[in-house]
Structures are given as structure tokens and as C-alpha cells.
Write a protein that binds this DNA or RNA. Structure first.
Lengths: 213, 213
DNA sequence: CTATACATACCGACTGGTTGGTATGCTATG
DNA sequence: CATAGCATACCAACCAGTCGGTATGTATAG
């Protein structure tokens, strides 16, 4: 693997490796892993196959790297999001849910999850990709679980559910919402599922629902 | 399409078309749609490619037929399940949830959902398959929604959620639970997510949780 | 300074295995 | 014989991965 160069801001002028990874995110989220051809990614990145195999040993290796890159990008994105600001951990938990709901905009490939898509196709045939997807999902759930755990200790310390399992449940709801949105070709069903998730958390934490405009 | 023959009981002695469909369910749930080769299905069914293309015009056509077959099989399976017996619709709702939880046994490809897997890969490139998957998911959700609607009218008629959206939410949770189980290669996370879903329904219907053994 | 040596980055034609689909033939049954 | 049901052989397109080549550094010796 070549040495990591400093990231440049624009996707257009980023180094070739990053452009290939960005292209992979876009194409795989649209067509899935197996149906994505290496040349599709090259075309999307405006590079040649030579460049692709210079940076990645194989298509499988790219998938593993893409899952890691996905984690980097999303971790930074959520870390910088405004919902992180409140001092009360429960405010951050609901802020997270509301933030995720507001992210359901644009076309389907723009808001669905790369690793949730990839793992369905690869969990049995490509253990390395499955592991990379697991690390991404579990890592993000762990970030969510941290705030949930703090909120639980503060508001409902004796509840008989664990912060970790609730955090993973939020991820399950989101992943499932993406599937239904893809099947119906309509993001509204995903929004409604996130609304149910919010109501569940409101009841778990005995927090009344805000006004519905 | 050849005329529909009566279903024979054994998968081994079923007619070739049904054997190919059963094989498709198994292979696609394991490897995904794109990675499944027509010859994989033929090998699983113990038939030749000639038989395959005698019964199906194309791989895409098979996928559409497989989604319809999946609906037939699962509809019959749930219709005959014991949770259908109680007279109280709310008992049937919780019976459904508990039944789905008990179905999470065996290897991953045996309890995950064919159409949830297929739609992730096909929603953008194969509209006909996406539509078939949508019909399957929406049709099953509609069955679930019927009992939820009856239970809502009986117990919480003024609640501000719709039976349809709640039924779809149950499907989203299950689909997401499958994804997490695949990523972690562990069905327990799926069980825990269904437990959260049950607790949500208990709170929506003000029904206390049963004993936890 | 400059020339040699070597490394990195990328290109694009090519290859060999794969795969969806076709053409044809065999067999049993009515 | 005619048709349905299935097998075998085959083909053309596709695609992951290879390879020879070019361009652009960069380090070091003289």
C-alpha cells in the first residue's frame, strides 16, 4: 500500500486512491458489490484500470478498504454534527435520531449505508469484507451506545435493557428502513420507521414527545 | 410461463420448476442475487441449464418468479402458524412477534429474507425485481397490519400512529436485524432487536411484559 | 550541476476464465 | 408422430486481473 498522502479538500482534485474510494462508495451503493465492475469504479473516478490495480490488490481488497474509508468519513461527519453539542447526553441521543432522520434526503444511493448493502452480498463468500462491514457498523453503534449509556445512568439507571443492545437496535431500524425505502422506492417509509424508533426511545426514557408541526 | 402444477410435498420429488425455485431461494439467500450463477441454481436443484431456460426466460425472470414463490411459501407458512389461533387480535400481534423471534434458528441463510436480500442489489438496476420484492414485503406487512389495526381499534383507538406504518416498522426491524446478524455472524443480535421491537409494542398497547425466564 | 539509478503513478491493450443464453438432440408419453 | 421435459454442446460477451510501457519525480554519486 502506498504511503497515505494528506487529504485534499475537493473530490475532483483528491489523490487517485481517494477518488477511487469515493467512486466505489457511489457505485456500490447504487448497484451493489457484485454487480459493480472494477471499470465502473474507474470510469466514475476518471481513472484507468492500471491506476486501480496500482492502489488495490483486488476488487475484494478495495471493498475492505472502502468499508474502512466509509467508517472514517462517517465518523468525522457525525463527530462534527451539531447534535453533538448539548451537554445532556439524552439530548444528544434524540439529537442523533433526529439528525439521522434529516439525513434521509435526496436519491436513495445518497443516504443508504455502504456496509449494510455490501454485507448482505458478502457475509458468506467474503469473510474479510464481512469483518470490515462489522467493524464499521459495530464501531458506529459503539459511539451511539456511549451517549445512550450516559443518558441511561442519568435518567433510567434501573432499566432492564443495555445501552449497547439499544444502540445496535437503532442501527437495525435504520438498515431495515433503507431496505424498505429501496423496495418501495420511497424514502417516506424510512422516515416513518425512524419516527417509530424515536417514539420507542421517548417511552424508554419517559420523555414526552415534542410538538408535531 | 408453463401452467402451474399442483405442489407435491417433497422438495426432492417436486417438479423441476419448483425444485429450481427452491434452489434459487437457498442459493440467493446465501450468495446474493448477482453472485448467484444460473448454474449454481441448476446444480443445487440437480438439473441442467436446459431445464432452467426451459422454465424461465432469463435470470431476471427467475428472480421475479422467485419473489412471487417466496410470497406464496411464506404466506402459507404464516397462515398455518399457531399464533393465528387466538381470538384477541392483540394476542395474535404479540404471537407474531414471538413467532418471528423463534424463527431465528439455524444458519443465517435459513432464516433471513430472500426479498430483503435481493432488493438491495436490484432496486436500481432491475425495476421488475424491485417491484416483485416490494409486493412481497408490502403484502406480508399488510397481513400483519390487519391484526394490528384490529388490536388498535380494540385497545388504543386514539393512538397517533397508523397500523400500516407500525406493521412496516416491524418489517424494517426484522430486515435490519438480519443485516446485523449477517455482519456479526451471530443471530443473537437479531433476537435482541426483536426484543426491543416487542417492548415497543408492549408500551404502545399498554400491555405489561410477560415473565422473563 | 548533471547523470545515473531507481521508485512511484498511471495508462490501456490484452488474456483467459467465466457466464448468460442458444441450438440441438434425446426420450418418454399420449 | 407430436409435444413436453430435459440434457449436452456450444457461443459471444463480459470482466478481473496482467503486463509492457511512459512520465515524473527523487536520491545519490561524481
Amino acid at each position: 500500500m502506498p504511503p497515505r498522502r494528506p487529504n485534499r479538500p475537493s473530490a475532483e482534485h483528491a489523490d487517485a486512491r481517494t477518488r477511487l474510494l469515493d467512486a466505489a462508495l457511489k457505485v456500490v451503493r447504487t448497484k451493489g458489490y457484485s454487480a459493480t465492475r472494477v471499470e465502473d469504479i474507474c470510469a466514475e473516478a476518471g481513472l484507468s484500470k492500471g491506476a486501480f490495480f496500482h492502489h488495490f490488490d483486488s476488487k475484494e481488497h478495495l471493498a475492505v478498504e472502502a468499508a474502512g474509508y466509509w467508517s472514517e468519513v462517517t465518523d468525522a461527519f457525525f463527530a462534527a454534527a451539531p447534535y453533538r453539542h448539548p451537554a445532556d447526553p439524552l439530548d444528544r441521543v434524540f439529537g442523533y435520531i433526529d439528525f439521522r432522520r434529516r439525513l434521509l434526503v435526496g436519491a436513495l444511493p445518497e443516504f443508504t449505508c455502504l456496509v449494510g448493502t455490501m454485507v448482505q452480498e458478502t457475509y458468506h463468500s467474503h469473510p474479510a469484507i464481512r469483518d470490515a462491514c462489522d467493524r464499521s457498523i459495530t464501531g458506529h453503534a459503539s459511539d451511539v451506545a456511549r451517549d445512550i449509556e450516559l443518558a441511561k445512568q442519568q435518567y433510567v439507571p434501573d432499566a432492564d435493557w443495555s445501552a449497547e443492545s439499544l444502540a445496535l437496535h437503532t442501527q437495525a431500524v435504520l438498515q431495515g428502513a433503507f431496505i424498505l425505502a429501496k423496495a418501495r422506492n420511497d424514502r417516506r417509509i424510512a422516515e416513518e420507521s425512524v419516527d417509530h424508533l424515536r417514539r420507542y426511545l421517548e417511552m424508554l426514557f419517559n420523555r414526552p414527545s415534542p410538538e408535531h408541526p
